[in-house]
Design a protein around this nucleic acid. Structure first.
Lengths: 363, 363
DNA sequence: TATAACTGCTTAAACGTTTAAGCAATAAAC
DNA sequence: GTTTATTGCTTAAACGTTTAAGCAGTTATA
């Protein structure tokens, strides 16, 4: 009788194996349990180094897991635990050095704590951004770190994230009204840095090709520009303050617009490097000397600012620090359970990188 | 008695609601079922427009789902169905226009079919690439689309993907030995295009700063370079063929090395735009005229090739088409169940974008 | 008028984990 | 020598879906 039971038992075990061989099913915790003749629960605990499992069993479990090439099923554990250990990241685009550097540092910081990231791009489109949010919520991410598209005014979708109780951290392009954690640089002060520098180089008519006023960071840069002009008792003229989408193409157009003025500026501060590039192209094409005739300053310190002729003075946005802080802020949320949600607003000091395009005295 | 049963029943329903209100739990299919007094199975089917559910019920279910702000739990359905509808993408880095454009097009194409992508970067590191693969397998992706790191020689991890039966599609940087689907451009022909063009411009001593020989695409570019030289009866000289990591820094070094030769080249074909930029910087710094003294050609058509002075002639790698084809190839795998796996090797014709750095006759 | 086919659901099991609760057996404490 | 703790497991339920199987009731078919 014992022999028969044993035979039945062996047959059962064997059939499992045959099934595995044929259908090439992924090995599960159950398979390991069957091999060692212990319960799946014990295997799970052994793999997680539970103190209530003997060292002997742990060793055995890990060995068998390795032999059977066991890979834990993230979906199952995430479902059971209610945590996916996935963090969603939304950026306007990845092919800018600033964003890809931020992403890289978010990833690095989160990987340390066992989190992985899902990167999505909005391509500066509000509609795409909404779809990305839905996708991320659908994927059950544990948190979202985002920088808003230029187009985004309606915050309904971001409210949706908050209402689901999912930590939301914004960086660079954020909104004050949303009342969430934010990491960025001091845009207002950056404008002061730039204007101070240009004044020091002898400029008297400083134009500003700014971003959309409705976006907080660009608004701050504009305010900084205005206040800095006042500080230096330079007149603020409407025709010198232009709103732009800050693409390279629009940078070209807005520069052409400035050159059409009877009273041309002697310096142009552009709120984005790509638009500054467009401006530079126009100036070069028309044989206007930079910085002698017109000085140029960009924003973002994209690598190409150091590649073009002349190299473009720009603001370093501390992408590394922003990425690290964004990740750390998320981790704070993830760790505390219900403790009071203290808002983090981290504003980093920016740094002006002076290059040829504004270096009048040394040129 | 009936009343009592009803009371108990109502109490049960009520308690569910109270629970929902307090703990702010996400609404599930069960909640909808409870409200409408039907089974969860019926709700699931209604949401998926199953033909065996009445239109009336479907309407009601969808209405309640909307009211309760129901969001399907992706983890649960993925676990049950054995499909995550997630595709992993591995690239050396995202801050190159080529890769970010490929990614964007992969995403677009896959989104149409209800798939989402997880982007990971290897930063050209083999170790990071292995970790990325583990992460993606762990996340139960339905497929992986990858372009290999420069460092990658050992294909063990890629074999791991194949052995799990997960579709693997390589693009740009791939390996022949792996025997998987591949989408890329014709690197061999591209070299011919470049050499033909340079010869036509009158160059007689053409150097090549190539990528690592062990990477198939760079090897093909080298072979194309050699064969094209032969075709034009130009002598092939060892000192003119240099292996490089193709970073901007290394491009500088290798250019300096070429300038140290007693018999300098009159043209340099660099296998990557970033390295070509380094070469350009060195030439500019030393007052060597481009293209009159030395012509320069890059590879990849990165946007900055059109921004620098002089603009750099380069090869357009068809990132859009590569992205679309990679996605489509994956979808083919995803759709057929066990049908024979016919390998897709898609080789696109490249295109030479002629700019100032090699336009001798018109300069 | 029986039989088949369709409609509109329900039941119950499954996906692979984790975890609270519990149960023997052994060790420690009194 | 009884009580108490500790060790090393097991059992069973749960996470939220999906789906095969089945079951009434209705409608069409022969």
């Amino acid at each position: 009788m014992i022999i028969k039971t044993n035979a039945v038992y062996l047959l059962k075990r064997l059939s499992k194996y045959i099934k595995n061989l044929n259908i090439k099913k992924k090995t599960t915790i159950k398979d390991i349990a069957n091999v060692l003749n212990i319960s799946p629960a014990a295997v799970s605990k052994a793999l997680h180094d539970d103190s209530r499992i003997s060292e002997k069993t742990k060793k055995a479990v890990k060995q068998v897991a390795k032999n059977l090439n066991y890979q834990p099923n993230h979906l199952a554990s995430a479902l059971r635990k209610g945590k996916s250990h996935l963090v969603g990241v939304i950026v306007p685009r990845t092919n800018s050095n600033f964003f890809s550097s931020v992403i890289q540092n978010i990833e690095e910081e989160l990987n340390k704590e066992g989190y992985n990231i899902i990167i999505t791009q909005s391509n500066e489109s509000y509609k795409k951004e909404c779809r990305n949010i839905d996708t991320l919520l659908f994927t059950q991410v544990d948190g979202i770190i985002a920088s808003m598209a230029n187009e985004t005014i309606n915050l309904e979708y971001y409210e949706k994230i908050k209402s689901k109780g999912i930590p939301l951290i914004l960086f660079d392009r954020g909104e004050n009204d949303l009342n969430v954690d934010y990491i960025g640089i001091n845009d207002y002060d950056s404008s002061h840095l730039i204007v101070d520098h240009l004044v020091q180089e002898g400029c008297k008519r400083i134009a500003h090709i700014g971003g959309y006023k409705h976006t907080r960071i660009f608004n701050n840069r504009i305010r900084g520009y205005i206040d800095a002009l006042k500080k230096h008792q330079l007149p603020l003229e409407d025709e010198l303050l232009i709103e732009s989408s800050l693409t390279t193409e629009d940078g070209r157009e807005k520069m052409i617009q400035l050159l059409a003025l009877k009273d041309k500026p002697d310096a142009v501060y552009v709120a984005g490097d790509y638009a500054a590039l467009g401006a530079l192209q126009v100036l070069n094409e028309r044989g206007i000397r930079i910085p002698e005739d017109i000085a140029l300053v960009g924003f973002g310190n994209e690598p190409f600012t150091g590649m073009v002729t002349p190299t473009i003075t720009s603001i370093n946005q501390h992408s590394i620090e922003i990425g690290k802080q964004a990740a750390k802020t998320f981790l704070q949320h993830a760790k505390k359970t219900i403790i009071k949600q203290q808002l983090n607003k981290i504003i980093l000091d920016a740094e002006l990188i002076i290059r040829d395009s504004s270096n009048i005295k040394n040129s």
